[in-house]
């Protein structure tokens, strides 16, 4: 047979195989236990309360808070715009689309960080990305954002900027009393919120 015909048939055959394969099998793979351990130890899954407050105040649409505590706890108190996925229901089918996606940044929170970490670990083990954990949970949130501690007068300016930001955030998010820092109404610079570096695509071209 003519070699052109053979090549054409090979390509058509391979094309047929790839056309008949469901594309969702090409999804990312799961992590091994070692990889998961390494990730957990790198603490990269944590997002600080300041970052979360900044995202909340800016009403970032690509950001979702997920409360993994029980429903009654969620009803008693929860962060603004958060949804409730109790840890026991984490694997329910209705939540899969929320957890396995690559558009939004999900942040799990619980009272401490234990339950949120469990949720993160389970979803990470499944190979899901973009799920993070609120560092220190609601307890630390209350300490830093809702009732920020005033820095001592000898503290560096960044401390005051951070304090002002937290005070402002606390007001915006419905917490503690309103007292300005260090006297004077001078608006101080907003502390820099380090944004999470995204994985870059491989650069290339012709």
């Amino acid at each position: 047979m003519n070699s052109r015909v053979i090549f054409s048939l090979v390509f058509v055959g391979l094309g047929l195989i790839i056309a008949a394969t469901p594309s969702n099998t090409t999804k990312a793979y799961k992590l091994t236990a070692e990889e998961l351990l390494e990730e957990a130890y790198s603490r990269n899954q944590y997002i600080s309360p300041d970052e979360v407050a900044d995202l909340l105040i800016n009403k970032d649409p690509a950001f979702l808070l997920i409360d993994v505590r029980d429903q009654d706890e969620y009803e008693k108190y929860s962060l603004p715009n958060s949804i409730n996925i109790p840890l026991t229901n984490l694997l329910a089918e209705e939540w899969e689309a929320y957890l396995d996606q690559d558009i939004r940044l999900n942040v799990f929170y619980s009272n401490g960080s234990l339950k949120a970490n469990e949720a993160w670990m389970i979803t990470r083990q499944l190979g899901y990305e973009n799920n993070y954990v609120l560092e220190g949970g609601l307890n630390y949130w209350a300490e830093t954002i809702m009732n920020p501690e005033k820095p001592s007068s000898t503290s560096p300016n960044e401390e005051f900027a951070k304090y002002d930001f937290r005070k402002g955030a606390s007001m915006a998010l419905g917490g503690g009393a309103l007292v300005g820092s260090a006297g004077g109404n001078k608006p101080s610079a907003k502390p820099k919120i380090a944004s999470r570096p995204k994985k870059k695509r491989a650069a290339g071209g012709c």
């Binding site: 390509f11 058509v12 094309g15 047929l16 790839i18 056309a19 594309s23």
Partner: peptide, 14 residues
């Protein structure tokens, strides 16, 4: 799907 389009491109190429 990507696979189906790839198949179409192969046919077009041939």
């Amino acid at each position: 799907t990507d696979g189906l389009l790839a198949f179409g491109v192969i046919i077009a190429a041939i």
